[in-house]
Every structure is written in C-alpha cells, then in structure tokens.
Design a protein around this nucleic acid. Structure first.
Length: 565
RNA sequence: CGGGGAGUAGCGCAGCUGGUAGCGCGCAGCGUUCGGGACGCUGAGGUCCCGGGUUCGAAUCCCGGCUCCCCGACCA
C-alpha cells in the first residue's frame, strides 16, 4: 500500500482525553477514532491489525473443530426472559422498542441466542459434541468505559460455545479450547498466562482467565515461581503458615489505651501481627457481618461475597457499625452473638491470639477459636499477596499486573435447563445439554498488545498483528531513488510481503517518526546515500542501527529478516 | 451512582479584571531543502459545547442542561 493512497493521519500530539499508552498510540497512529464514550470507529490501519487478530482466532477455532456462525445483535427481550437474565444482567441490557411495540435488546453476549440455536438443531446424543463460535460486535452499556479500547461499550468479541452430553465431554471441549487459546495468543506473539479465576455471576465450576502480562494492567495475578500455579487475585489462595501450637491459656483483659489498629497493637505488645486477630465489618444485603482474620492478612472481598452466597458486599459504614453495637478498634467475635460471624480459616491454625475486647481501650490475650468465639461460617477469606507461600508447593507467589484478554467458563446445564435445550441419550432419556463458553475481546487484545509492546517512539507490535510487516521509505525526490523505491515496492508486493510504502514528499524525519509510531517490525530505506553503493538499509523496529545490503538482494533480505522478528 | 477535572480551528493550547478571537503543529499554494517531525512567503479554516439571563455589548459574568476524561463503586 502506498502512503499517498492511504487514509488516516498520524498525530504529533495525542488528544488530551487519552492517558493510557495504548489509547494515545491508537489515536496518534490513526488506527481508531472515538465517536462517543466507549464507542470507536476503526480506520484502515487499525482495522488491518484487528483483522489479523481475527484471522488467527478463526484459524485456531476451526482447527479445534469449531464451526463459525453468525447471530443477531438485536434480539427479542423474551429470549432473555427465558434465561432469567432480562433483569439481572449487569450492566443492564440496552433495549429499545420496535415499531410494533416489541422490546428488542442489543446483545451484550450470546448465550441465549446460541442456546436457541442448539435446541432447534440438537436432538440426540449423536448430535454431540459440537462447538459453535462467532466473531461479532456486542454492546454493553458499561457504567464506566475507559482507557481507549481496553474497556468499551461496543466491541468485537469472539465467543465460542461448546455443547456436550456430560461433564466429561465438557472437560474435553474445555481443554481443547484452552489449548486453542494458548495457540492463539502464542501466534499473536504475546506472553499470556492462564490463571484460575472467579467465575462470578456467570457461575459454573471452573473458570480460567487469560492474562497478558503488562505493567499497566488493571488485574493482579499471582504466579508461583516454582510449580506454575497461577490465579487472579480474586481467586488465589496461599498457604498462611502455622502458628506454634500451644496449650490454650486463660483469657486476660489488657489495657490498650488509644490503640485502634493491628499495627499499633502488635507494636505496643511486642508481638508479630500474625499473633493477633483482626475484625473487619462488612455490610452484605443490609446485614452487618463481622469478619475475623489473622492480623497479618487482608480480606478478599470476592471470596467473602461467594461465601455469603453472592450478596453485594461492601465495607460497613460507621453508622452501621455503631448501630450493630460494635466498637471499632477494639472489636472481635468474642462474646458477640447478635452479629453474624464469618471467620477466615487462618485463625484455627494456632492459638492464644490477641483480639479486641469489644470495649474501648481493652484487648484480650489468649483468645482461642472454638473456646472463646464461634463462626457462623468458616472459610478461606484471605487475599493472597506477593511473597506469600504457594498453596500447591513450597514455592513463593509473585504478584504481577496483567490485562484480561480471554475468559473461559464451564457453564454446565444452567442455560439448557432454563431454555429447554435437551437431547435424548441412547436409552431415549432426555437430558439438558452441558455447555461451556469461551470469550476473547478482540479489540481489547489489540490494546493490550500495544500496552505490552511499545517504546518511547511508538508501537512495537509483533509481526503477526502489526498493521504492516514492512515500512518502506524513500528519502528525497531524486529520480533514481524514486524509481528504485517504486520497483522495490512492486517486488515486495509480488513476494506477498505486507508493505506500507511511504512515497510521500516528506522529509526523512517525518518518515522515520511515522515508521516508529506505526511500528512495522521492519523498516526499509531507499536513499541517494545508500543507492550510491547499490545498497538498501534494513532495520528492525527494535534495533538501534540499520544494516546495509545489496539492493538486488532486498526482497530476500526482507523475507529472511521477517522470519527473525 | 459518589468524588474530581475539562469543553475555544483537525490536534495541543492561550485569551476569562466584559469591547466581537489568537499561538504552535497540521492543512492548501509557491519556492528552497532532503538521514530523525527543515526553512521562507502566501492562504484557507471558528455555532468559543448547547439554551436562557444580565449588559449598549458576553468566549469572558449568572442560571440550567449536554458531552468527554480521571479516581472509586461495578464489570466477560
């Protein structure tokens, strides 16, 4: 493609609204353009990269046995009433009335539509298993779109849905998709890790996220440095360590004037925080819950929410705490029976803890679970942190930042049961179809790839997803230079090299800067200086200096160099 | 939804003690240049977010609204 025939402009300055690196670079390179909050147009350059990603996804879905389908973006609201998600989906469904007064929704995801497709076409166990997928636009009216393409309202998403006769079949389909995901991200040249994840309101027994490691990421994941255990921070567990086993001693009340935090308590008593019990107050569905956890640990609110049956959980307000009769700074579960007590399993590991006395300026020594306080619920509630011990081996967990680019779920029979998607087994007995779903945000993946692949000059996307493979630039308007560059351009095109030919009448600095901004992995320069020696210059995007090669070998040199980047 | 910030040329911004809009980049033309956003001359380009009010006069002051961004809440 000749730059003089192309559409879209590079910007020297990024628009003020863009703060995130990928957002700035996408706008500066002229890849996307914003129409409204979280709603973007793709210009030719951005669409090229997006399509390269889509093509890789499509090839790997097909290889894994997936069948591509296309489903409606506008769907009758009744379909969502069947699944029970018409009023519960978050964010709420975007919907409108058609001219006959029927309510239509803009699909935020396609479980309902694909289940309708399945129940109309699957009758028998002989029809199973099957995996259908789509790469389509979806719309979610997100409460807060942000960071360019990282979190948008209208977006391209690949969603695959598997249908199996039983959970063993689902496991097989799920693993096949996990393998395909590894291949997809690998082919995109991206370092992605699969981590255990919380399945959230979608439900199901297993769920894994695919996270692109990037410092600017919004998600925290924990990875064991030894055994490969990896989970996002909502899900991750860690070994909390054993406190010394001691015979329970009698409880003593101690005077602790002005001490209201675990740090201060531990310091004043000269003990580690791990010998104390911290009380944290939450409000769940209007009820105040007292969470007890060892003093050196923190509460993982997702685990707490799951333990409480999915209720909305947030820190209790000072008013709620007071109304519940709790003494902030000196609270504990000891002697409290009118407040629900949820206990992290860490406090069962040892004994003789220091805990609040539920009186101002008083704490208790030698508090023991079971003898001195009880739990209405006893589970793992701790937030795993960098440096914690791995739950699976004797390694250490390391916290890393990342961006969620894919998420796969074992859905089970939830949708099939609600929507009547059944098959008959060999005995003629009906069963609900067992489903899985597997998503990749295509636009988010592009943005994430830029977050992970850029430098001070612009994008350094891997070859497989960069908008072009080669940036060919001619310097100056010398007739020999122009004709040499023209002919090299034709030869590269003929050799099926994906080349952007900068044939504009611009000074070298402009061309070099645009080459670095757009960032094809290879830059080829034809100039009077190099042509004098019958040479061209080839430079990889990440190299400091170019290398000169005989002009006649240019195509071969480029093809070889592309294999290396 | 809570908190904060911002809307003036395509982009970045100034003008805001009221007097009818400017700078840089970009864009168009001509010329000189041609190895990291080069230089000169000429030129085009504005609903100063919208509506109302105050005033002889509003980008500027007042009231109401809209949009966008950031933090939080929420979220495949």
């Amino acid at each position: 493609m000749r730059a003089t025939k192309y559409f879209g402009k590079t910007l020297r300055d990024a628009p003020a609204e863009a703060e995130t690196v990928s957002h700035r670079l996408l706008l500066r390179a002229g890849m996307v353009q914003q129409l409204a909050a979280g709603i973007y147009s793709y210009l030719p350059l951005g669409w090229r990269s997006l399509n390269k990603i889509s093509t890789i996804i499509r090839e790997e879905m097909n290889r894994a046995g997936g069948l591509e389908v296309r489903m409606p973006v506008t769907q009758p609201r009744e379909l969502w009433e069947e699944s029970g998600r018409a009023d519960t989906f978050v964010p709420p469904l975007a919907q409108f009335e058609d001219r006959r007064g029927r309510m239509l929704v803009l699909a935020p995801t396609h479980e309902e539509a694909v289940t309708a497709m399945a129940r109309a076409n699957i009758r028998s166990y002989r029809d199973l298993p099957v995996t259908l997928y789509q790469i389509q636009t979806k719309f979610r009216d997100e409460p807060r779109p942000r960071a360019g393409l990282l979190r948008v309202r209208e977006f391209e998403m690949k969603d695959a849905y598997s249908f199996d006769a039983d959970v063993e079949g689902l496991d097989t389909s799920f693993n096949a998709m996990a393998d395909a995901y590894h291949r997809i991200f690998g082919r995109c040249g991206l370092q992605v890790v699969m981590v255990e994840a919380d399945s959230g309101p979608i439900g199901g027994k297993d769920s894994n996220e695919f996270v692109l490691l990037a410092e600017s990421g919004e998600d925290t994941i924990l990875i064991c440095d030894k055994c490969g255990y990896a989970a996002n921070s909502e899900k991750a567990s860690s070994r909390k360590g054993q406190s010394p086993v001691e015979a329970p001693l009698p409880v003593e009340t101690i005077h602790t004037p002005g001490i209201r935090t675990i740090d201060a308590l531990a310091k004043s008593l000269g003990i580690p925080a791990s010998r104390t019990i911290k009380a944290v107050f939450y409000s769940a569905a209007g009820e105040v819950v007292l969470v007890s956890i060892r003093g050196d640990l923190e509460v993982n609110e997702t685990k707490l929410r799951n333990a409480l049956g999915g209720a909305d959980v947030r820190l209790a307000t000072a008013d709620q705490v007071r109304a519940a009769g709790l003494v902030a700074g000196s609270a504990s579960a000891v002697g409290l029976d009118r407040v629900r007590s949820v206990v992290d399993d860490s406090v069962t590991a040892g004994g003789n803890y220091v805990a609040g006395a539920n009186r101002e300026d008083r704490h208790l020594r030698n508090v023991n679970y079971g003898r001195d306080f009880k739990a209405d619920l006893m589970v793992d509630l701790a937030l795993a942190r960098d440096g914690d011990a791995c739950p699976k081996c004797d390694g250490t967990l390391r916290a890393k930042r990342g961006i969620e680019v894919g998420h796969i779920f074992k859905l089970g029979t939830r949708y099939a049961e609600k929507m009547g998607a059944m098959y008959l087994d060999a005995q003629g007995v009906p069963h609900p179809i067992v489903m899985g779903c597997y998503g990749i945000g295509v636009g988010r993946l592009l943005a994430a790839a830029i977050e992970a692949n850029h430098d001070g000059r612009g994008m350094t996307l891997p070859r497989a997803i960069a908008p072009f493979e080669v940036y060919l630039a001619s310097l100056g308007d010398d007739a020999d230079v122009v004709s040499a560059a023209d002919s090299l351009y034709r030869d590269l095109e003929a050799a099926s090299v994906d080349v952007l030919y900068d044939d504009r009448d611009e000074p070298p600095g402009v061309k070099f800067n645009d080459a670095d901004l757009i960032g094809p992995p290879l830059r080829v320069v034809v100039s009077k200086r190099s042509l004098k020696n019958a040479q061209v210059e080839v430079k990889s995007r990440k190299a400091e200096k170019p290398a000169s090669h005989p002009f006649g070998d240019a195509v071969e040199v480029v093809r070889a160099a592309l294999e290396q980047v």
